[in-house]
Every structure is written in structure tokens, then in C-alpha cells.
């Protein structure tokens, strides 16, 4: 029931953007900017680049407003654009060398601070090293598998939506996810047992 309402609402907003309504674009942006940036960040693992690519995604959304037809769910369409932008970026090798280092020299410390808890240094180190392992492992996945897992896990998209976003068949999505999770299980399953 939620999905139907969202579908109609986002598509309706997009149709209004097509008709020249800026307010509707701002609403779409406010709602989807977070998920898109987070998806791109997990794909590329560099916040500044992810935001730059997200700008590209929303620019494309805006540019294609005239031809927009609400045939698919808006989020699916949006993530098709986002996947496209991310996969192109990776394919062109632009992501080489800009993954933020995990131990860091301090330049990105501020954004990472978690103010609500005050863990001990040891807890913090364990948490950091586990997070580093998660990030490394996700990064080691082939780009398309990575995109499928991220949409499946974090955007909670179903196979059909992921298939539409990645422009492949549902059975191809199943196979992508299966292989990806196999790798993740092999490399990450020990984490929960530790600490």
C-alpha cells in the first residue's frame, strides 16, 4: 500500500517537474538525495566523488524531465541512472586511487565522529577495523555485483526493480546477488563471531 502511494507521488512530482514546477524538483531532491548519495558512496567509497556523481544523477533526472514517462517506479528509474553513472565511472577507471584511506591522516575525521556513544579506544579500534573490512570486501566485489547487493540490502529493492535498474533479467540479478553474497559470507561471516 505504501509502495503504491510512493509510486504515484514521486511520479506525479516528476510530471510536475516536466511541466516546469521547481518546487516539485526540490521535493524529489530532498527525498532521494540521501539514498542516491549513500548508494554512490558505497559504490565508490569516496564521499566527495559520490556527491559529485550524485549531482550528475540529478542533473540527468532534470534534463530528462521532458521525456519522462511514469512507466516504471520513480526510484527504479532513478537508480537506473545512478547505477549507470556509477558503473561508467568505475569502468572508466576514474575511481582508481581516490578511495579514502581507512586509517587516515585526519582529514576526514570530523564526519566520522559518532558523538552519541563514547566507546573505549579498544572498542573504537575494533569497530574501525571491522568497518574497514566490510568496506574492503564490498569494494572487492565486481561492480555489477556490488551495485546489486547495495540496492538489495540498503535500498530494499526487489529482484524486478534491481533488474530494471541494471537493465538485465531477473535471473541475472539472482545470479549476481548469489555470487556476491557467497563472497561476502566467505569474507565477512567471521566478523560477527569476533568481538
Amino acid at each position: 500500500m505504501m509502495a503504491v502511494a510512493t509510486f504515484e507521488h514521486d511520479a506525479e512530482l516528476m510530471l510536475r517537474v516536466r511541466d516546469g514546477d521547481a518546487q516539485s524538483f526540490s521535493l524529489l531532491l530532498a527525498k532521494h538525495r540521501g539514498p542516491v548519495i549513500h548508494f554512490l558512496y558505497r559504490m565508490i567509497q569516496n564521499q566527495a566523488v559520490a556527491e559529485e556523481l550524485a549531482q550528475e544523477v540529478f542533473l540527468r533526472v532534470y534534463r530528462s524531465r521532458a521525456s519522462y514517462e511514469p512507466t516504471a517506479k520513480f526510484t527504479t528509474w532513478l537508480f537506473r541512472i545512478a547505477s549507470h553513472v556509477a558503473l561508467n565511472h568505475i569502468r572508466d577507471g576514474k575511481h582508481e586511487r581516490h578511495q579514502e584511506s581507512l586509517d587516515g591522516e585526519g582529514t576526514e575525521g570530523i564526519g566520522r565522529q559518532v558523538a552519541s556513544r563514547a566507546p573505549t579506544v579498544e572498542q573504537e579500534m575494533v569497530r574501525e577495523s571491522r568497518l574497514a573490512e566490510v568496506r574492503r570486501t564490498v569494494e572487492s566485489l565486481p561492480a555489477k555485483q556490488r551495485a546489486a547487493v547495495l540496492m538489495h540490502k540498503y535500498q530494499e529493492m526487489d529482484y524486478a526493480q534491481i533488474a530494471a535498474a541494471l537493465e538485465c533479467s531477473e535471473s541475472a540479478v539472482k545470479s549476481l546477488l548469489f555470487r556476491a553474497y557467497e563472497t561476502l559470507r566467505a569474507k565477512l561471516a567471521h566478523l560477527a563471531g569476533r568481538g
Binding site: R33, G34, H38, R127, V134, R185, L191
Partner: peptide, 16 residues
């Protein structure tokens, strides 16, 4: 699989 799930959930993000 559940451990993988939890590991993925621990991935905190930077603010936009």
C-alpha cells in the same frame, strides 16, 4: 548470511 547482513548494517555513513 545474518552475520553478513549485520556487518553491512554496521557501515555508517558520512553526512551529506
Amino acid at each position: 548470511q545474518q552475520m553478513v547482513w549485520r556487518a553491512l548494517e554496521s557501515w555508517e555513513l558520512e553526512p551529506v
